[in-house]
Design a binder for these strands. Sequence first.
DNA 1: GAGTGGTCTAGACCACGCA
DNA 2: GCGTGGTCTAGACCACTCG
Lengths: 261, 261
Amino acid sequence: MTDQSGNIFGDGPVVLQVGGPLYLQLKRWVEDAIKRGLIKPGDALPSERDLALRADVSRVTVRKAVQHLVQEGVLVQRHGSGTFVAPETQRVEQSLSQLTSFSEDMARRGMAVRARWLERGLYLPSPEETIILGLGSGERVARISRLRLTGDVPLAIERASLSSSVLPEPLTIADSLYKHLEKSGNRPVRAIQRIRAANIPEDDAHLLEVPVGSAVLHIERISYLATGRVIEFTRSTYRGDTYDFVAELRLGDPSNGARTP
Amino acid sequence: MTDQSGNIFGDGPVVLQVGGPLYLQLKRWVEDAIKRGLIKPGDALPSERDLALRADVSRVTVRKAVQHLVQEGVLVQRHGSGTFVAPETQRVEQSLSQLTSFSEDMARRGMAVRARWLERGLYLPSPEETIILGLGSGERVARISRLRLTGDVPLAIERASLSSSVLPEPLTIADSLYKHLEKSGNRPVRAIQRIRAANIPEDDAHLLEVPVGSAVLHIERISYLATGRVIEFTRSTYRGDTYDFVAELRLGDPSNGARTP
DNA sequence: GAGTGGTCTAGACCACGCA
DNA sequence: GCGTGGTCTAGACCACTCG
């Protein structure tokens, strides 16, 4: 009697509301189905060809609607497998006033985290690195790039640059960069962080396993020793769908206006 | 001999490098042209039909390449007018440790800002508003929604909710909400802010004049009086391409924001 | 009105996953 | 091997901008 074979929508025709371009009508229709619980996170959508047939539109139009929803993180597509309603993801919070390292931060809240090395070693510095880190001429820069994961879910890409005088042997870092720096008395006490939103480019999208163009937080951090010396320059990319930054604001003296000295 | 008529690429055929999907090849080709200065911010691209002809691909394929670049903020399209290389935008910075209002913040750095009212008045509260603002039963909520602009460029959408006991007459607000609250002794002294990246949905995209799916910063702010009472609950959406948030981090006790250099 | 981007179609082939 | 999504085409009409 009923069609149980993975077809959550039944097999009747798809009836669109009127108004606007077809792909937006279809998009609304899918959003509706999800909102009403006809189809839940993890469930498969009918195939593009099936939807096209039943909504009486071309497959290109179906793809345009689906593509928008993938873009917004509502759906995920797996080549050769199907289109699915995105699972709900738990968001991670990070303080914006306390200076911590990623691994310490996660350990504190009892999350299992791993890191995959992307790059590690001594390099010729870029002009930008030379200026920001205040490198002497001929001095090398230590670069550490990591992919941060909880379980199998990538969370962030972190690319740090430090003076080679501070980190002469990048390969000896075991887990936490800040712990390592602490041993040599070089742990930063202060940092300026610049945060903005961006659409992720292709290469990073693959690393973080999100669709190209997804929103991410781009964070640039410059860390200082108590002496005022710049010790670390880090560019990180955090997945927008799993990361929250939390800040506490107070009225009054801007303290520093957050300006580099 | 040379074609000066707005055709920056000349009129020869477009030669693509090999490898991968055509639309990505074409995308790379356009990026290259911009990188090499053949075409500068503000310049028009050849029309989609022209590009298709010269690259020997279909217009659909051209559109897919262009669409990706629009998504990444490299190009902008104007219906009926053409496709252009995006102008470089100046980024705005905002402190993440000092509690200020948008209008005060902008006035301080001498930027001309305007606001357009989107919504203003007393409403029946949503369950969320009731809980967060601690509304009594039957109490109304004051909602203030504004579109923030500098000149003609939209910067942010701000949707604030306050208890009607604090703001009984939302229509009387002239410019700055915080100034208004100060008059009645209700200016917040502390706030918790939650920041994350998201792809902008359709409706907000029109307001901010950015393509659907662009990266934006989503900020949720809960503000407190000195008494500890919640006074304001605001959801804002900031354009990712024009807004930077700056935070200063310090090692040690997180409960005290930032003090003593 | 000429030219631009925006939407849409019907049909084709390829690359991937899974049983 | 079959069904899925991924890419691509040639051609059509609409909606908008601008001279």
